[in-house]
Structures are given as C-alpha cells and as structure tokens.
Amino acid sequence: MGNSFGKVFKISTFGESHGKGLGVIIDGCPAGLPIDEEFIRAELQRRKPGQSKITTQRKEEDECQILSGVFEGKTTGTPISIVILNTDQKSKDYSHIADKFRPSHADYTYYEKYGVRDYRGGGRSSARETAARVAAGAVAKLLLGHFGVKINAFVSQAGQIKLEKPYQELDFSEIEKNIVRCPDPKVAEDMIEYIDEIRKSRDTIGGVVTCVAQEVPPGLGEPVFDRLHAELGKAMLSINAVKGFEFGSGFEGVIMRGSEHNDEFYQEGDRVRTKTNHSGGIQGGISNGEDIYFKVAFKPVATIMKDQQSVNEGGESVTVSGKGRHDPCVVPRAVPIVEAMTALVLADYLLLNRLSKLEPKG
C-alpha cells in the first residue's frame, strides 16, 4: 500500500534503487493528449544523477520507454506505462551495511515494518524512486500546458545562503543556466561554492525549493479534507528528505494583522483579482486564480562520508562508514521533483473540477 497517488489522474510507481529498473503506471489521463517523448526525457535529464560536481556521481542516463497508452503520438485514454532501466548500480558499495542501520535513513523503520529490507541503496526508500514521479509529472505538465498552466520551481536556499528577492522579481529563464538551479546568478555562485565546500568536508547540507504555479484556473480544490493546499502539502511531504512545507505567507503571516494580511478583491475585465496574494493563490482550500506559491524544506542528505555510531539487526553497537555515491545537497535535483508532484496534483484537481458541477444545457 501507499504506492499510488491521485484520484482521477492517478499514478502508481514501482521499482527499487538497485533493482532492474523503475516505472510508473498513469491511469485517468484523457485520450487525445499529444505526448512529446523528448519533453519527458528532458525532464528526467533534469533529475538524473551525475549532472555536476555538487550531485551524486552515479551515472544513469534515465532513458525511458513508453510501453502502453500512447498511439501515433497521442494518449488513448488507457493506462500509460513508462519504465526506466537501471544501468549503473554498484550494490557492493552497500555490502558493509547489510545488517546495519544507517543513522537517519529508513533502514530501521523498513526493517521494523516489513521484517526485511533491501540494503542496496535503500531499495524502495531511495530517492531514485522519484525518477518515476518525474516521468509521470512530465505527462501531467503536458496536460496542464493544454490549459495554459505554468510551473516553475527553483532553489531559494542552501544551508544559510538565502535568495532574498521575491519570486516576482526573478527571471525564471535563469533557473537552468547554473548547476544549483537558482535564478539569481550571484546567489547561485555563492550556493555552488558553499555546497562544494561541504562536499569536500565529507558532509552534507539541506536547503529550500520554492515553487510557483501560474495561470491556474480558479475553482480547483475539494473541501473539506481534500483542500488544494492540503494535497500539495501531502505531495511535497511524500518526497524523500522533505521536512517542511508552507504556502502563501506561511509562518511569516503570523506576525501580520488581519488588516495587513487580507487580500482585497477587485474586478479586472471579466476576472476577479486580489490586490495582494498572502493567500498563496488558495482560499478556503480552493484556487482563486492568482499565483500559487510555496516552499519545501529538505534536510541534509543522511549519508555522510564520516564514521557514525549505530546498531545492527542483532542490537549490537556498530560503526557505520559512509561509502558509495551521494549528493552533498539534494535541492538542485529536487527542483524537477517538486515541479512534477505539483503538476500531478494540479492535473488531478483540474480533472476533478470537471466533475464538480453540471454544464448548462445547450
């Protein structure tokens, strides 16, 4: 259980870090959607390992194959299955922790839940699972693009280095021009230098990814328990290493008075707008047509190249030595994952919204 996500646009992912491969089945995608396979591959390239000196050096090309659900370049309305084969597993790198629990990893909790665990790279608990999500998210982006919805995520913090500018002052075309995926070139240089220093010290650091969804139509959201921001929160918190989620004014909003925080309405042509957007584009759990924006906090990568104390499956004290290939900071590669999960939520709720009210006759 727990490997499926969505209600109408529904995905189920499968596979492990060091297994034969990973994949996803997408059910509920409408028929007739043009599928750009090169776009899907490009999205996977943004997430793949081995991109730069500040990411893991595992070399996976993450080439995908669409096995079903697409005919002559368009979706058929039947389940879409996509597979991504693993080609650069080095399982021997993990033989030294076959019976040991790595600090802050899922080794112990998986062992307690299932009585068995795949110690090779963490198995199903590895962030490599997110490759399947990115493939599915690419299809969701193609669907959203049909309705004019745009999603951009970027690194806004690495350790103590923060991007202070509001997103409205940023040029999103700069995001992919540097290896840390920060749209401010000067801040990006500082982040890269800082992350590389952390890497050289054989340690890791966390960070924050900010996401902005624009041109989202009003009316998306299913109160009361499936509010749009609640589903976005669930989606983000399902990503490996995520420790926090806030949308709109977030925690900073608590210091504002209601008179400051309220977003006043005005009419612009045939559209109702708000003068400010402290609500983050969502009110009452339903999108209001303004930009949806939120932040996602990622903890430091748990595997460090230093000795740590732990226990093994027999309860004996052991030393765990960091080996293998790992990211010193996960946020540069997390950007496309955050975008993918955002796209999956919005695609699902857009299709759900078509079921919420009767269209007028005639």
Rank of each mutant, 00 (worst) to 15 (best):
G115M: 11
R120W: 08
I54V: 13
D107G: 05
K90Q: 14
C64Y: 05
A98R: 14
E112M: 12
K59N: 14
Q65R: 15
I54S: 08
C64G: 05
Y119A: 03
R117G: 11
Y94N: 01
V83I: 15
G73K: 05
H96T: 08
K59Y: 02
Y94P: 01
R46Y: 01
K100R: 13
R102V: 14
D107F: 07
E60L: 00
G50S: 00
T78F: 09
D99T: 15
L44V: 10
T78K: 11
G77S: 08
F39Y: 15
F101D: 11
Q65Y: 04
Y111D: 14
Y94D: 02
I80G: 09
E60Q: 00
D118F: 12
H96L: 04
R102A: 04
D118P: 12
I84L: 15
G50D: 00
I66D: 02
P79T: 02
K74W: 02
T56F: 00
L85I: 13
A98W: 03
G77W: 02
R47E: 03
D99E: 14
P79K: 01
E72Q: 13
Q45A: 11
R46D: 03
D118Q: 13
T76Y: 01
R102N: 03
R47F: 06
Y111L: 05
I80D: 10
T109G: 01
K92I: 11
R46L: 12
I80A: 07
S52H: 02
P49T: 02
D107Y: 04
S68D: 06
T109P: 00
S104G: 00
F71P: 01
G73T: 10
Y108Q: 15
R46P: 02
E60P: 00
Y110A: 08
I54Q: 07
K74F: 05
Q65V: 11
F71R: 12
I84S: 04
S68R: 05
S81A: 15
Q45T: 03
K113P: 11
R102E: 12
R120N: 06
R102G: 02
Y108P: 03
G121W: 11
C64D: 04
I84D: 02
T56M: 01
S104K: 14
Q89K: 13
S81T: 15
